[in-house]
Design a protein around this nucleic acid. Structure first.
Lengths: 226, 226
DNA sequence: GGTGTATGCTTACGTTGTACGTGAACATAG
DNA sequence: CTATGTTCACGTACAACGTAAGCATACACC
């Protein structure tokens, strides 16, 4: 009998680079960066570790693939409205992408080379094009891109990594760690006073707040109007 | 003869937590985060790996120690002038600290708990106090802190991680990697046009530019004056 | 002296990334 | 049909990792 037309004798689907990277990304989202291990990914796709090397050259390559894959999730806003509106949409989309895979920022940070993937670069192209619509010079557009990009990345880093006490205490839990002890010592009065606000502030609102600051600064500087 | 008063029979200086963390930080600066290994640090301080555990509970603890140590390098600007000037000094000092240990951002990013060390929190205290001097409400001050902090971290992350092509090509080197190939394909015209600016712009100037945008936005919003 | 308490060394175990060799499935050429 | 080359998965093996456990040494205080 012919080997096809039989569902049972095709025990495993053909492995591809995409399937490998997808599995790795899923593991990273669910269990953190350090859980992304060649053996763990292999197990996820039902294969031995060494078989992955037919589709990625390294673990490095795998991680690069994850970065590119994440950026490929970027959904380009339409560019019909004025550049400020498009910028706002683009920025919040960028933040959405980063937040939907919160651990990818750690990857970005530890990777010291720029992205080369076309998929990963297209959001940058979009951003530069949109900023360019504001009518400033190329050089200024690049500056604005760096500033905005930095703001977005840093903001998401702070809100999801919460490195400065952002979400330590849920609501009013007394925060069992030693931070309370430090605060109780009376030093850091401003931090102590800020804690409830750190816990309660709506991140979306904060993000928009900072973005508006930047946009307002741009308008004030260049006399641009929305 | 007595065992003291002889320089030769005191073969090693007493190991301390600080010496361990210093060594780890030095290794991280010189060779990257992944080079910070218990055995490597031990070798650096002239000891076997397991001896480090007398001074740090974990590798985790060691890395936390590095984070705290880096923040402890923060040199507090004087707070005599107006709050805008102090903010500017504080921001550039914060950037200086991060840039002088460029790999620490990867640590910050992969660590999902807030800092609890007093040393690490004092720059935050300083920042909140300075922002508070502007006269806005506590809640707004926290927002401004998050926005400024995010901007600083993100900017440094982009400028030292150069994830978006920032420093790929030194001066006018033709960039041997595959990025050129992608660009040559005609897609990404804005990125292609931006590349020389990405390579040539002065980071200090860019940083000040973004910071001024934020400050200008604040002034415009709150009607604050320098 | 003795006796704890730090501190360091050694050995050992499980897990990591990956180099290397084997073998099955398949395409194409003779 | 057989021969041959390519692709892909498997299995074994090794060095380096974090660290648990046990033992050795040195100094503080009685």
């Amino acid at each position: 009998m012919s080997p096809k037309a039989d569902a049972a004798d095709k025990p495993r689907e053909r492995l591809t680079r995409n399937r490998v990277i997808d599995a790795a990304l899923q593991i990273m989202d669910a269990e953190g960066v350090e859980a992304v291990t060649m053996r763990r990914v292999a197990r996820e796709v039902g294969v031995e570790a060494m078989s992955l090397y037919n589709h990625v050259t390294d673990k490095e390559d795998l991680l690069d693939g994850i970065c590119a894959r994440v950026m490929a999730d970027f959904r380009f806003p339409d560019e019909d409205g004025d550049w400020v509106a498009t910028t706002r949409h683009g920025a919040s989309e960028w933040r959405r992408v980063l937040k939907s895979h919160p651990n990818v920022l750690a990857l970005f940070a530890e990777r010291n080379k720029p992205m080369t993937d076309l998929d990963a670069l297209m959001p940058m192209e979009f951003a530069l094009r949109t900023i360019g619509r504001a009518g400033m010079g190329e050089r200024e557009a690049v500056q604005v891109f760096n500033v905005m990009g930095g703001y977005i990345m840093g903001f998401v880093m702070m809100e999801s990594g919460r490195m400065f006490g952002g979400g330590t205490m849920e609501k009013d839990a007394p925060s069992p760690d030693q931070m309370t002890h430090v605060l109780a010592a009376g030093q850091l009065p401003c931090v102590a006073a800020a804690l409830p606000h750190l816990a309660n502030c709506d991140p979306d609102e904060q993000f928009a707040f900072g973005l508006d600051l930047l946009l307002a600064g741009l308008k004030a500087r260049y006399g641009l109007l929305a």
